[in-house]
Amino acid sequence: MNVFRLTGDMTHLASILVLLLKIYATKSCSGISLKTQELYALVFLARYLNLFTDFISVYNTVMKLVFIGSSLAIVWCMRMHKMVKRSYDQELDTFRHYFLIAGCFLLALLVNEKFMFPEVLWAFSIYLEAVSTIPQLVLLQRSGNVDNLTGQYVFLLGAYRALYILNWIYRYFTEPHFSRWIACVAGLVQTALYADFFYYYFLSWKNNAKLQLPS
């Protein structure tokens, strides 16, 4: 564990807490893409299958349970909670995320560290996470104005993977047999997808103005 990875995990956790706060405090999920939440739930379920077979550390196990539990709770809330689901931007959240699932699974069958079921699912979860924010970014561009908590949620979600890239660079130079090229390439793509959001988020912070994404 290094400071980049720990900060990355805490940033990821913070993004989930901000999202839970927004939904709980405002009883609204306006501006949040249900499709991105469903993709993230799938990412965690596919990646943390080894939850009960490979014990790595208490921290690792607890964080996996928190990520799986919170992502499923958010999807449940957005689908079932009568107050919350009324505020869901259904007509704006129309990105065909099933294509993302199919494409990532095909890619995982072709490109993986070992052609074994757990490794294919792990690669699938890495590729899917890289593109899972697309429906959310599309929804933000369509919905124009972004409320503060939603903006902070997306910013933290993008920042965590950027910190993981620093973690991979650090591990590459400090660990002899370290190779995470699948996660690293996917992580670079994932972070690059946030580039224009980061730019407009920085502008809104610098000008102390409302976050506006050009539609």
């Binding site: 990821h12 080894n50 790595i56 690792n60 964080m63 070992k114 973690n167 047999h177 996660a183």
Partner: peptide, 10 residues
Amino acid sequence: GSGSMEHDEL
């Protein structure tokens, strides 16, 4: 498992 193969990250 071996360091490189085991997925020790979240």
